[in-house]
């Protein structure tokens, strides 16, 4: 359902990658690896439509995402490097806001259940300022729980700052989503083991794979 053709990315005067293409179907998992500065995050931002590629295009069910715009964004969950949460709001408020913004409205009970699933029981009504780095990451990732119906997940380094237990939970969420016919596109430099029928990999160190 997601397809990239002949992508070239330039940041500043540097070309990060060129001629990159892939095809991602429902039920598939795509992992992007590469050293720092090889353009992992840029690739993710191109795939989301935040960044325009210097050449080539990304297609969603055959249509250019820069034309589809809102129609495509409604089918996408993007969790970036930044957690997109506010220090002054509580964990539950943050999650409710990010779910609503993402178009998957979750009621209070669902929000609390999602936070508990990520191991944040007891922290729901604390201001996020009081939480640790890993706990904040969990708040951001808790958005995946009520987003099962959204077909495409794009995750930038989902496992950073997480402890082993949380990594397990997130891996289960991802493999559950893939098993249900969704597609996941993510970057990591960890060797994570996620159960999936089809698992693709793009290694930016070696060019498109």
């Amino acid at each position: 359902m997601l397809e990239a053709v002949d992508l070239r990315c330039e940041r500043g005067a540097r070309t990060l990658f060129r001629g990159l293409g892939f095809r991602l179907r429902g039920g598939e998992l795509l992992r992007v690896t590469g050293a720092n500065g090889t353009g992992k995050t840029s690739l993710l931002r191109i795939v989301c439509g935040l960044l325009a590629p210097a050449q080539g295009e990304v297609r969603w069910h055959g249509g250019d995402i820069r034309v589809l715009r809102e129609e495509f964004w409604g089918r996408l969950v993007y969790i970036g490097h930044a957690n997109a949460i506010k220090d002054d709001l509580t964990a539950a408020e943050n999650l409710a806001v990010s779910c609503t913004l993402g178009g998957s409205s979750a009621d209070d009970a669902q929000v609390r259940a999602a936070l508990r699933q990520l191991g944040l029981a007891g922290c729901e009504d604390l201001p996020v300022r009081a939480l640790s780095q890993g706990q904040r990451r969990r708040v951001a990732l808790a958005r995946l729980v009520p987003s099962g119906a959204v077909p495409l997940w794009v995750l930038d380094e989902p496992f950073t700052a997480l402890d082993a237990a949380a990594v397990d939970v997130v891996q289960q969420l991802i493999s559950g989503h893939v098993a249900g016919g969704g597609a996941v596109f993510y970057t990591t430099h960890l060797e994570a083991s996620i159960a999936a029928a089809v698992s693709l990999c793009i290694d930016l160190d070696r060019g498109a794979g």
């Binding site: 964004w73 409604g74 996408l76 993007y78 930044a82 957690n83 506010k86 913004l101 993402g102």
Partner: peptide
């Protein structure tokens, strides 16, 4: 500025709402 710094702005840019 604050939404930009903490990444919320990106979520707004990727919202299905115009």
């Amino acid at each position: 500025a604050q939404d930009h710094a903490d990444g919320t702005l990106e979520q707004m840019l990727l919202s299905a709402t115009p």
